[in-house]
Design a protein around this nucleic acid. Structure first.
Length: 369
DNA sequence: CATCCGTGGCT
DNA sequence: TAGCCAAGGAT
């Protein structure tokens, strides 16, 4: 009987996505960058970012030496910004610790920030032809269905089982096989409405035999996202430049430039309780609070003007409701010299690393819509 | 080990 | 439309 690997490789040769940009190279830098960008990110979303990033920062040395703001600007809109910060740190370690060469063992590769077992394996297999098994969302789904695994996919024991399976099934040509199983997961064995009639593994897929392809992997019901709220400050100086604040290198939107924030509870994203009514209400007390909080923190004498209508932004683990507050500067418009506060002309602001909703706000400043 | 970390597309 | 999910890793 033909092995699963041979079946998949044969299918891949005829139906695989051979034209993906990162499949035109065996350069470890390019392969590694693709793996980082594709973490929790769909191929079509990553494509334009990948091309732009490589154009600007084509090798380890360029990335290692780049200003962090440039790296984050190239990542702006892709999400999970720790990937970008970790990628730069990894490049610096490759340059200084590995002589400018991506490490050629799994043990060394996973010491790089942002590089876990699956990412390391993918790079080692593709760049160096090593027999290394991956276990990403596609491979995981294929294995869970083909072996009709009912257990919670996220449980540690299941993960271990899946890694064992993946390692056992991965042939010498792991480079081809890894791409094949990923393409099968992306094109045939999709999360919803899998195309089993077109699947080369259908005849030996246990889930298919049991008529349960659509029911696997099992999903656990998520509780509703908590709601949070915030105000964003839109203030311009005499020359029409907008004040932005660089966020710290951790947490949500870490390292990105953002509009100054404030929330009713004094933090930046206030958690809403069920009994919190109208948390973003426009009242004199709220206006006074915002005006004082921002004036003090930004060392500006502000006067609050209009509050825009409420908007929303949904994150993985909470939902943000926010309003933009327009203000004018009464006192000195000389901003704090702190490196985390900067006035930007609107056009320049848009070239920076901005969170998506902030980019949307600034884009709409001039012409509406 | 559970939680944190973005965003866009799909149904 | 509201919820689900994606080429995961760090803490």
């Amino acid at each position: 009987m033909i092995s699963i690997a041979e079946t998949l490789l044969d299918w891949y040769a005829r139906h695989g996505r051979h034209d993906l940009p990162w499949r035109q190279t065996r350069d470890p830098y390019r392969l590694w960058l693709a793996e980082i960008m594709l973490q929790q990110t769909q191929v079509e979303s990553a494509k334009p970012y990948y091309a732009r990033f490589l154009q600007a920062l084509p090798n380890w040395q360029a990335l290692a030496a780049a200003p962090q703001d440039q790296v984050l600007a190239l990542w702006s809109g892709l999400g999970y910004y720790a990937r970008a910060r970790n990628a730069q740190r990894a490049a610096q370690e490759v340059v200084t610790g590995f002589g400018g060469h991506f490490p050629d063992t799994l043990e060394d590769a996973v010491t790089l920030p942002g590089v876990g077992r699956s990412t390391a394996a993918a790079v080692l297999a593709s760049a160096f032809g090593q027999r290394q098994a991956i276990l990403d969302a596609n491979a995981r789904r294929v294995l869970i269905r083909s072996h009709a695994i009912d257990a919670d996919p996220k449980a540690a024991a299941t993960q271990q089982w899946l890694w064992t399976l993946a390692s056992a099934l991965t042939p010498e040509d792991a480079h081809g096989y890894n791409q094949a199983i990923q393409d099968l997961g992306a094109m045939i064995c999709t999360p919803r409405q899998p195309r089993c009639p077109n699947c080369p593994l259908a005849s030996r897929c246990m889930a298919h035999a049991q008529g349960r392809s659509h029911a696997l992997p099992v999903t656990v019901n998520r509780p509703p996202k908590p709601q949070r709220c915030a105000f964003f400050l839109l203030v311009a100086d005499m020359e029409g430049r907008i004040l932005l604040e660089k966020r710290p290198d951790f947490g949500i939107w870490g390292g990105l430039w953002c509009l100054p924030q404030a929330a009713p509870d004094g933090g930046e994203f206030a958690i809403l309780c069920n009994d919190t009514l109208q948390p973003l209400e426009d009242t004199p007390a709220v206006r006074q609070f915002l005006q004082e909080a921002w004036s003090r923190r930004l060392r500006l004498d502000l006067q609050l003007m209009a509050l825009e209508d409420e908007q929303q932004h949904v994150f993985t683990h909470f939902q943000l409701r926010f309003r933009c507050a327009h203000a004018r500067v009464l006192g000195s418009a000389v901003a704090d010299s702190a490196a985390t506060l900067r006035w930007y002309r609107p056009a320049d602001a848009l070239t920076q690393g901005l969170p998506t909703p902030i980019r949307r706000i600034l884009r709409n400043l001039g012409g509406g819509r």
